[in-house]
């Protein structure tokens, strides 16, 4: 149930809403750990840890399906209204975002084995910084969700610009490494895909921020979000 509301006349309805929210928080935690551990696996070129991360993705998918099933059941049987309705809709949407974030963590982990064959430590530093920033965003988002704070949703929403800036910088840096030596190309491409996955995770976190804002206020964050990914304009020809 929305935390600031009075109890529902039908207590079991509140329990169903609470259960739905608990599943989502569990999904937040699983995805956080997946991103964290995939970044550790990249930093230490640790394919075994990467494999563990890949296996954990099915748990995130299971939770997404369970949340979807429970949401449909609540919508069909309880006909929630006002903030209860927004609560269910927002949880369902946020769960889909987390499911995609799990997929991106899995994709990052899948590349660790290949990257370990030709590690490029000097180029992997930027990725670590991006990972830290994305994890900070996700933690802020989780806290905002639990405490139902629009300020935190807004902060996350605006904070993605910094992730985009880092991605933009990494793109240029990797391009430089590739131009320096064709031997770097394979590793750089893998690192570039990983960076792109992190950048997409950042986008999904901002989508959850929008879901939370809607859930609390009933309004949409409609103005254009600040974006700093300018990689579509970058060329090796200068």
């Amino acid at each position: 149930m929305p935390r600031h509301s009075s109890p529902h006349t039908v207590a079991s309805f509140d329990q169903e809403l609470k259960f739905l929210d608990e599943m989502l928080v569990r999904q937040f935690d699983l995805v956080y750990d997946m991103i964290h551990d995939s970044m550790t696996a990249v930093s230490h070129f640790d394919p075994q840890l990467a494999q563990e991360v890949i296996q954990r993705d099915s748990k995130v998918d299971d939770l997404d399906r369970a949340i979807e099933d429970s949401s449909i059941k609540i919508l069909a049987l309880r006909s929630p209204m006002a903030d209860d309705l927004r609560w269910v809709i927002a949880i369902q949407k946020a769960s889909s975002e987390l499911e995609r974030m799990g997929d991106f963590s899995k994709n990052i982990s899948k590349r660790v084995g290949t990257l370990a064959l030709h590690p490029l430590p000097e180029a992997a530093g930027g990725l670590r910084v991006m990972g830290i920033m994305v994890l900070e965003q996700l933690e802020r988002m989780r806290q905002g969700w639990i405490e139902e704070k629009t300020e935190l949703a807004m902060a996350v929403w605006a904070g993605d610009e910094a992730v985009d800036t880092l991605y933009d910088g990494m793109f240029r840096e990797l391009l430089t490494h590739m131009m320096e030596s064709p031997k770097n190309i394979s590793s750089c491409i893998h690192l570039l895909f990983m960076a792109k996955n992190l950048e997409r995770i950042g986008d999904h976190i901002t989508n959850i921020a929008e879901d939370l804002y809607y859930r609390i206020t009933g309004d949409k964050l409609t103005s254009d979000r600040p974006k700093a990914d300018k990689t579509c304009l970058v060329s090796s020809q200068g």
Partner: peptide, 11 residues
């Protein structure tokens, strides 16, 4: 009060 009524959380 409207919110309480439509959601069934009428105190």
């Amino acid at each position: 009060r409207t919110k309480g009524y439509v959601t069934g959380r009428f105190g």
